[in-house]
Simulated scan of single mutants.
Amino acid sequence: MRLYLASTSPARRALLAQTGIEPVLVAPGVDEDAAVATHEATLGRKLSGPELVSLLAVAKASAVADAEVAGRPVDGFVFGGDSAFEVDGTLYGKPQDPAVARERWRQMLAVGGGTLWSGHCVLDRRADRAAAVDATASRTGGTGRPRTAPPVRPLPASTAGDGLIGDAAPGGSAMVADGDRVVAVDSAVLTFADDVSDDEIDAYVASGEPLEVAGAFTIDGRAAAYITRIDGAPSAVVGLSLPVLRSMLLRGFGATWHDLWSM
């Protein structure tokens, strides 16, 4: 069974590959700034962290789901993801500019940490999905122990079009289902070391690593030494929450994790 990754992120691909899954990478081509601006104008306010990452996850997955890949229709599951780091009520995406990254690190260290929001959207585009396990029935099983996975809820009518999730709490997760679509948000609360110097910040920014990643850091790279604690799934900080993705597939579509393994 194929998993199409609506992203060209090396980190997300590597994360899946190390679990035995070789995704098909497809660039979604979504204008993220425009999508966010449109929804904020409609709502008349700024999007929260969970809303922003769920909105963009849905937009990315939707952009790929009905496209042709290598001249053929998509046949499998399509995953779209997005991340944002929230510090003291402010959401941070990719800094891109060294000066911005440097100042962001000073702000993050002054506060001591923040919340990484990770948005997920899975769309079922299996050619034989009409004959697949009934999704409604599959959602009633596999509940597991309390708090091991977010409860699956029907998607509220008010957000049926965009799939926004607004009620995830820092360190928690939420999941909603709507036909052939499951949307989820996971989060992890990070604590930074309290003795990081300006020289260390300058050296890290000079490495170029923080410029193209949400929050200006990665835990699977040079910044790992500056992070003392993670409350939540470490994979969520890398780019997608593997436990939540597994639950989305299993409880939303009756698909097991090993169905996606590359044999």
Rank of each mutant, 00 (worst) to 15 (best):
167 D>W: 04
144 G>K: 00
165 I>N: 04
129 R>T: 06
103 E>D: 12
140 T>F: 05
168 A>M: 03
144 G>W: 03
135 A>R: 10
129 R>S: 09
125 R>P: 08
103 E>Q: 15
139 R>G: 12
106 R>L: 02
151 P>T: 10
162 D>R: 07
128 D>I: 00
164 L>R: 02
120 H>A: 13
142 G>K: 01
111 V>F: 15
139 R>D: 06
121 C>Y: 03
138 S>N: 07
152 V>T: 07
147 R>A: 13
123 L>A: 07
113 G>H: 09
142 G>F: 09
164 L>F: 06
143 T>F: 14
134 D>K: 04
164 L>Q: 09
148 T>N: 07
136 T>L: 12
108 M>A: 13
124 D>C: 05
153 R>W: 03
107 Q>L: 08
139 R>P: 02
134 D>F: 03
139 R>V: 05
113 G>D: 08
124 D>M: 05
156 P>C: 09
122 V>K: 11
123 L>E: 01
104 R>D: 01
104 R>L: 15
142 G>W: 08
109 L>M: 09
122 V>Q: 04
124 D>Q: 09
142 G>A: 11
167 D>A: 01
151 P>A: 15
140 T>V: 06
159 T>L: 03
112 G>E: 13
149 A>E: 05
116 L>Q: 14
107 Q>M: 07
143 T>P: 00
131 A>G: 05
109 L>N: 08
140 T>G: 06
112 G>K: 07
112 G>T: 12
120 H>R: 08
135 A>I: 10
